[in-house]
Design a protein around this nucleic acid. Sequence first.
DNA 1: AATGAATCCCCCGTAAAGGGGGATTATTTG
DNA 2: CAAATAATCCCCCTTTACGGGGGATTCATT
Lengths: 218, 218
Amino acid sequence: MYADKPFTSDTAAIINVCIIEDDEVIRRGYISLLQSDEGFFTSGAYAAAEEALKHLEEDQPDVILLDIQLPGIKGVDALPAIKKILPHVQIIMLTVHETEDLIFTALKNGASGYLTKNTPFSKIKDHIREVVKGGGAMSAGIAMQVMRHFQKNLNTPLTKRETEILECIADGKSRSKIAAQLFIDLETVKSHIKNIYHKLDVNSRDEAIKVARKDRYI
Amino acid sequence: MYADKPFTSDTAAIINVCIIEDDEVIRRGYISLLQSDEGFFTSGAYAAAEEALKHLEEDQPDVILLDIQLPGIKGVDALPAIKKILPHVQIIMLTVHETEDLIFTALKNGASGYLTKNTPFSKIKDHIREVVKGGGAMSAGIAMQVMRHFQKNLNTPLTKRETEILECIADGKSRSKIAAQLFIDLETVKSHIKNIYHKLDVNSRDEAIKVARKDRYI
DNA sequence: AATGAATCCCCCGTAAAGGGGGATTATTTG
DNA sequence: CAAATAATCCCCCTTTACGGGGGATTCATT
């Protein structure tokens, strides 16, 4: 019933993994640890994204472990190219630094997970199994960074109404549309916006949005 | 050296946990499982948020396990009230349903984690330890939902330049500011915006932003 | 009594927005 | 090679929005 490289992702099926990692020691370590687990098959291991891209079509991995700090094409930049070749492959980013920008760039580009390299390999295997099942994989530190991005600043200088109006502005709504939506007069909206601008020390919509997003008032 | 309820969060210190969960069986189960681990101390367990709020000041938990589906005040709505009493407490939401709206509302309101109830308790304990250390806690399913929210739609009808300009519009920038930022003429920006509006079948900035966010073109 | 919040009103001038038409280059692609 | 697409720029037009200035009122909380 089972082939060497199963095409389906049954729970019992062997997971086909590809490794893109420039550090030879780590790369060999991953290969060795995966090979000693009969639930996994390593279809390819490459030191650079350029090299990997040539072989991915042939390898047909279910999951790719992708180092974020690669020489040449960086891991985050390789993401779209990989997705173009294998649209349904799950990609787990591996990193040493929890740099905020890289995390979000990777997520936008379609990564299914983001793990720090100090994650025990048994956990990495757990995460690989999870992403094959359609889940996500995140280290605690990464998860915290992501969650912080959602959390509002409770020490906002803005009132409830002002925050509400500023959120409308961040949605690109005109003053008259805000007025209609909140069932208040256009003049009231104007007053609120004037107060918002004074409090944030800005004098345009885009500056207000910028400050409000930076300080997480919205 | 160690008191019964240590004030610091040393790695060796006992973690003070509070449980807010209306199902008596689950609540008792959590208490029992926590008590059988010397790394944890259960300072309180309540069936409703209203009741918990009265005792939290006294309990001084490091971490609160908070059921999202509570009778009376819902878990997500209790979050701000809890944070007001104990601003530095870490709150882990527990849920059966991975409802998207609730996840993001909880994250905005300051939750440190979001776990599904089918998570093995050993894992829940791992996650509690992680959030005490300043990390985040997310089940794979939740992590996937969160990540999907970041991922762009690769099947956008918009060109690269149009997407770029639409992102500027979503930042509240005026046409002239976009022109200055991209080093192109105001007329070029106008042309692009006209094309964007035609492609998205809208005729205003706010509608364009709405459609683009819904379909994840930006 | 005072403060802050939310509401509404008037003035002003400049700039922006949206829609119509078109043209010119590259580049990509069939 | 020819055709399509993308990106650039140009003109017309009208309406509305925007930002800044000055106020006032009501209501709740302090």
